[in-house]
Amino acid sequence: MGLAHTPDRATLLDIYRKMTLIKQNDEKSRAIILSGKIPMVYYSPRGQEVIPSAISVNLKATDNICTIYRGTHDMLAKGVPLKDLWAELAGKSTGTCKGKGGPMHITHPASGVLVTTGIVGSSLPIANGVALASQIRGDGGVAVAYFGDGASNIGAFHEALNMAAVWKLPVIFVCQNNLYGEHTKYEKTTAAKRVADRADSYQIPGVRVDGNDPLAMYDAAKTAIDRARAGDGPTLIEAMTFRFYGHVFGDADRYMDDGEKKAAMANDPVPRFRQWLIDNGHSSDADLSAMETAVGKEIDEAIEAAIAAPFPDVAELRKDVFAEEIPA
């Protein structure tokens, strides 16, 4: 295939474990919303599992990401603990953000999730600042900004790419191109044939990769991350993918072409990679099944704990606005 980097067996299995975690977490999220037990606004990442999984195996625990409302896959791949995540989704005091942030703003610095934004395009400029600090301190850290195809049309994208390029920041811009921004098709709103082409304007590497192919994604990620760590500056990666459950959960998908979603779902990257691992002798059906069962159990436990956990006290409204509590 002509890839510069290929993951070893342990890494391949790590990528698959992350993908499984994301897929099952999504299935359980949709089920729990439908059950009414945890009502929440939910932007499903199902179908986009490969991208952060193949990237995160190249990141250190101390590396940081900035992501978006459609970001549970990015968070889980980076290592946000399930219990903390689920308690936040349920709005509980034990959540990552004490229940104050919610699904669109999960934050967990301990695992390198510094910002989750609900504003299109805002992850990029902030990731630049995180990378700038690493550059100044010389700590070898890299930052990843995740965002969608639609975000490449907002000013913040262009400003951030230019600044990262002139300052040679250790940042990787990862555009998860799922072909739609809300209900609008990519071609209708984007002049560039490929988001990756936009890197040319800023004279940085821009690569388009099949974001549903773990090996290609791993290769592109490792190349970009190595380059950033070596002090050679940013890369724009455009990872091609598709979201299986529309923009927001409950979306009727009427703006899509007939069969478009079905075709993407038939090409589900998760079972495809599973089969590839077995066919190539990296694992067995039994071993993978055991891992999948264990992952499912872990998620179930996190959900149960979230449901049982207490809600925050209303006094919390006066805390964390500033460092000092606001007097009652």
């Binding site: 709005g91 509980k92 229940g99 104050k100 919610g102 699904p103 409204l317 006066r318 606001i326």
Partner: peptide, 16 residues
């Protein structure tokens, strides 16, 4: 509303 960003958690949002 009180001097706070809009909170997520239901009881906080209701109080807000």
């Amino acid at each position: 509303a009180p001097y706070s960003p809009v909170p997520y958690s239901k009881p906080l949002e209701t109080a807000f």
